[in-house]
Amino acid sequence: MKWKFLLPAAIFAAVAVAFAVGLTLDSQRLPSALIDQPAPQFELPPIAAIDGGDPYGGGFSSRNLGGGVALVNVFASWCVPCRVEHPQLMSLARDHGVSIFGINQKDKPENARAWLERHGDPYRAIGADNDGRVSIDWGVYGVPETFVVDAEGRIRYRHVGPIMERDLTGTLLPMTAELGP
């Protein structure tokens, strides 16, 4: 029993390691309950017409998904971090040919249109989620959030918060490449 005096030190080391690991975890980042689940069934109208013009964005429903790998991006003109991620979305759509669908959450039609006009429109189709119900079906708790949906229409990944350059090169591009066109 000569090693017994080491016991307190060993317990301390174990607790220290557990705390160190705990500190590096981001408590704000929550796992999605929907990973590897089929995307929810939904039907969203386009961004409403203003001043007698045409509606914008074409609307977005679950029928749009499942034809190939796609990103689903929840955005709004009132969302400040959305502006930070917008250049990355533009680059994904323009330079890498990734299909992005937009859920425009609780936005005013005129604001949403002005935003897309000023910053560019990377979306293949946009649906307006005026009461936030479809966002709840997707398990969204903050804007922006982005989902990777595979060719079978299953949710494979969720990104919470703005997509930065490093998320693009580190996660999203390798993932969309791996899942196929």
Partner: peptide
């Protein structure tokens, strides 16, 4: 609710 947001 938990179907959408998990046990958290």
């Amino acid at each position: 609710i938990t179907d959408r947001y998990g046990d958290f």
